[in-house]
């Protein structure tokens, strides 16, 4: 009879252990990267591009990768927003709730959301070969845009589906066309957009498999879209593959820089999201 109380205690114990495990992983990952990353970290790493023989222990830094990653993230986020906002708007305002197209489109975005970045990369790569393009900043931006569009659409759509119907009706009642409700809709889904952007940026900056094929890797900072571009994750990866222990240490520092950028973005993003949600109502 009192068995159920014992069961309750045991279950609760396991739950607490499971939740603590999540903490333990976070702490362990960050601690591990910090411990190995701090020693090799210096100002040159983030202010210089690789000097000659960098991958054999020569001087220089990974500014090329930092800048390359930022370029790609910035451009593809903007592109992604420009493409996904109209789609979300179309799905939720132009189409009826039970529309066949809306259903298929949502299914398609679910599938696209699940497609691994390596598949996007491979696909984009074949297209680029077909077009006779070389690995380039433009290619990287393109593939990352493809990668984050489903993230954008899915998370914005989730918020947009909650849009009160009265809101649209009342704007129509004022004589607005569907297109003209966009301002109202945008204001309503602003928090959704902020969250989606946050997610996408995180995914975009951390992605290695997609850009591997398309953006290539280079030691210089790209000055145009058709030059190859280095990215931080790949920089970590390549440095780590070096047999030279000093270079491996720099890979850890590069990983640290990457984590740092991601954390800063997510904290900033959170502040912005909070700001938006506070001002919504």
């Amino acid at each position: 009879m009192r068995l159920k109380f014992i069961e309750e205690k045991i279950a609760k114990g396991f739950m607490i252990i499971a939740s603590l495990a999540v903490f333990a992983f976070v702490v362990n990952i960050i601690y591990t990267i910090f411990r190995r990353g701090i020693p090799a970290l210096n100002w040159a790493m983030i202010s210089q591009i690789p000097a000659g023989g960098y991958y054999n222990g020569g001087g220089g830094g990974i500014l090329n990768a930092i800048v390359g990653s930022l370029y790609i993230v910035l451009c593809s986020t903007i592109l992604g927003l420009l493409i996904s906002i109209p789609v979300v708007f179309y799905l939720n305002v132009y189409l009826k709730k039970d529309s066949r197209l809306a259903y298929i489109a949502r299914l398609a975005f679910d599938v696209l959301f699940g497609i691994p970045s390596i598949v996007y990369g491979a696909f984009a790569f074949t297209i680029m070969i077909y077009l006779g393009m070389h690995t380039s900043l433009g290619g990287g931006i393109l593939v990352i845009t493809l990668l984050i569009i489903p993230i954008f659409i899915r998370s914005m759509d989730e918020v947009a589906q909650q849009l009160p119907k009265d809101l649209l009706d009342s704007t129509y009642a004022l004589g607005a066309t569907k297109l003209e409700t966009i301002k109202v809709v945008l204001r309503q889904i602003a928090p959704g957009i902020a969250t989606a952007t946050l997610l996408s940026v995180g995914r975009a900056i951390g992605d290695a498999a997609g850009v591997m094929f398309t953006a290539g890797f280079t030691d210089s900072i790209p000055t145009s879209l058709n030059q190859p571009a280095a990215t931080l994750p790949l920089s970590v990866f390549f440095q780590l593959s070096s047999p030279n222990a000093d270079v491996q240490d720099r890979a850890y520092s590069a990983a640290l820089i990457l984590i740092f950028i991601v954390l800063v973005i997510s904290i900033l993003g959170r502040l912005i999201t909070n700001y938006f949600s506070k001002h919504k109502i």
Binding site: V22, P233, Y252, L258
Partner: peptide, 24 residues
């Protein structure tokens, strides 16, 4: 607290997971 930890975990790029894997 746990959600914060989860956010961090979700935000860590996969290459960093790889580094952690090789180191730990």
């Amino acid at each position: 607290w746990v959600f914060t930890a989860l956010d961090i975990l979700a935000g860590i790029p996969s290459v960093v997971y790889g580094v952690w894997g090789t180191l730990f």
